[in-house]
Design a protein around this nucleic acid. Structure first.
Lengths: 68, 68
DNA sequence: ACTTCACGTAAAGTTTGCTTTACTATTATG
DNA sequence: CATAATAGTAAAGCAAACTTTACGTGAAGT
């Protein structure tokens, strides 16, 4: 999966720290998602979308490797 | 989280087995998601939405407990 | 030079998603 | 009655998500 978390975060002028706090997760989690180290859980992804007033599909994108 | 997986599955006349195959997961996974035993991963949720030509938010719904 | 802020890495540990296997129950159909 | 299809439960095990802690770096400001 790829995502545009960094872009959305910057549009809203949130630091990783501030976003983490808003979402109720650790800053590490934000970094790891942004860097593509792993995918957020579904509820976290939905809360992220909500915070940015977007749909999950606007922020996260499936890739070939996601279909097995 | 709650979800309307059963409803969408029935609209498309898919058995749990057939859906599982289409998604590339085990039947247990479908049962567990439908029964609310756990949430699908984000990529799986997005593939499910895709199969049903819907948005993630049409099928999965956040609840109080999802915000910590 | 010092501090602060934002971003990043790494490692160890817990929790949760998902798999496999095996077994049960119900309903429909030959 | 037999058997097939669909849905369900349970348990053990692996993999992925997430946490916490600690440390490193560069930029900006005082």
């Amino acid at each position: 999966m790829k995502n545009k978390l960094v872009d959305y975060r910057k549009i809203f002028h949130y630091s990783q720290d501030k976003l983490a706090e808003k979402l109720g997760v650790s800053r590490q989690t934000i970094i790891s998602i942004e860097k593509g180290k792993y995918n957020p859980s579904l509820p976290l992804a939905m809360i992220i979308a909500e915070v940015f007033q977007a749909k999950v599909e606007d922020i996260f994108f499936l890739e070939e490797e996601d279909y097995k």
